[in-house]
Amino acid sequence: MKKNLFSLLLALGIIFYFILTPMILNSPILRESSFTTLMYIALAISLNILMGFTGYVSFGHVVFFGIGGYITFALLYYYKISLFLALILAGIFAALIAALLGSVVLNLRGAYFAIATIGINEAIKSLVNNLEFLGGAEGLFFNMKIYKSYGGPQNALWLSFYLLGIITIVVLIISYLIKHSKFGLGLFAIREDEDAASTLGVNTKLFKTIAFMISAFFPAVVGGIFFFKNGSIDPGSAFSLTKSVEMIFMVMLGGIGTILGPVLGAITYDKIKETLLVSEAFKNLHLTISGIILLLIVLFVPEGIIGFLRRKIKVLKNILD
């Protein structure tokens, strides 16, 4: 399995490119666009651990992004604890929620699981909408003073960016380690045939739950960083169903179950979106065009960029993953 090290290194290289260019050029504009790209990459890789490795397609995965965002935000807002601690707490809390929810919804298969995850996201969104201390439908706003302890707003923005970069690298490496571990082999067995996996000795319930927890932890941390940087949070942007489907889209686009796939998928998706949004002709129709592209991919390249390359170019078959 060492041969797949190439894909990991390539993915790392890509991520470093997005971290280093804004840093070297000291460009806030590049930093902002890189921030979005890195966020997409981290989210796609996280989801892939559940969707690609384990075979459970969560349509409401953004719920963990939102939960992480709210926990981080509330901890900073009310208790003024340090950002790092808040992020870790947010990740752990989201993972615990995933364990709790997972123990019931992971018994559902296929489309029923998908619908249940949409339901969870909507339920939590509606709950948050009605919690006074989380600001209800309007959400919460930071007082600019909060950034003071991080060296002012400018520094805080850079800090968020670097934190996101680190998290993206960590989630990539974890995804690689899982894929090539005994645990990962168990997950893939579950993806292929859950009943067969259990008759081969895999503790399917435990494994699915752990995969769900890992794939919930990272979006929560990313959500925390995003809303810290954003300075405000509201239920609509924290629990947006569109973002959920975007995550699935990126994984599909790049290549489900692979290491490099979610990275390529996220970058490509980001580029498509950016191009559509700035182009005069397509700006107002970008949703329609995204829809058409998504449809074309689902119909004609369901195996994603990686799968397509592996199929077309023999040399890449054993290298790309």
Partner: peptide
């Protein structure tokens, strides 16, 4: 297989929804 059918059909109908919603928003 059915698993693939389920996922692909969810995504393809979602893309229809993007196409229609995008058009109406426009």
């Amino acid at each position: 297989n059915f698993k693939e059918y389920e996922l692909s059909s969810l995504l393809s109908t979602f893309s229809l929804s993007l196409i229609i919603t995008g058009f109406l928003l426009f």
